[in-house]
Amino acid sequence: MSDANQNAGPSENSDLHSAMPTETIKAIPLRHPLRNLAAAVLLVVSVSFLYDASHREIYDWATFTHYLFNHRVLTGVVVTLELTAYAMVIAVLLGIGLAVMRQSPNPVLKSVAWTFIWFFRGTPVYVQLVFWGLLSTVYPSITFGIPHVGDIATIPSINNLSLFVLAVIGLSLNEAAYMAEIVRAGLLSVDRGQEEAAKALGMGWGLSMRRIIIPQAMRIIIPPTGNEVISMLKTTSLVTAIPLTIDLYMATRDISATTYKPVPLLLVASTWYLVFTSVLMVLQYFLEKRFARGYAQMGLEVQVTPLEGNGAG
């Protein structure tokens, strides 16, 4: 049969179809010379830096390994982790409270929350920590009483508050201001229809918050909160302003003050901070996955390392 014959009439349309090529395309892929060059340059620079670092005397890797698991360093690690955990838990709870207050129809609750956020977000955390350190100087004692009637109770001194407690208070109040904004963004991201649907089913405010609104807001709240936890882990190094001097950073500073080798001890501190920020990133990955339930089809994939989801190359 000739080609002309095959294309003769409409009744032979199916032949037209089968005449089309069906094998998989095997084209030469597009080259990316500039991209590859940039990658090569970065690779060379990175390898040279690592090689140099491993031989450079001032890094003093012997001292680094000697102090990495030093008792004082490990105690500092524990203090830093405790500060981070306590401060974040308080900050999240306080932040949820502030976020809810900001949405309240009551003008006093609203303004108090706004002012709290304005103040604690608007002043440096270092300055706030110095202030908390001076608390017992500023308020030697606190007395509750009614004018013209008399005193009811006096707290003689806040001196008894340990530096650790002051550090937790200072860090958490500052962080609460940021958490309030994150939680507020999360609550606002949930469609109003959700609250109405919950109401229409007879759910009260607390129940609909707990079961319907907050679980959905979590998807928006978790990524920036993970950021805040990582940030908090590092901000704890500022508690020296209180002055609390037993955290990870100050422990390594103290050691280097006697060994005169600041660089390897800075590396010790950095290593521990990196270890725990890495752990936090993995935790965040699983939390994000947990709260992405029901949203999988919307292309909201969660990525923890740069080598994931990189199929396109």
């Binding site: 229809g193 959700q194 649907a197 919950a198 229409a200 319907i212 339930r293 029901g294 949203y295």
Partner: peptide
Amino acid sequence: GMVFQKFNLFPH
């Protein structure tokens, strides 16, 4: 019982 125009199912 109430049924809404935009369903308002709980997506999670």
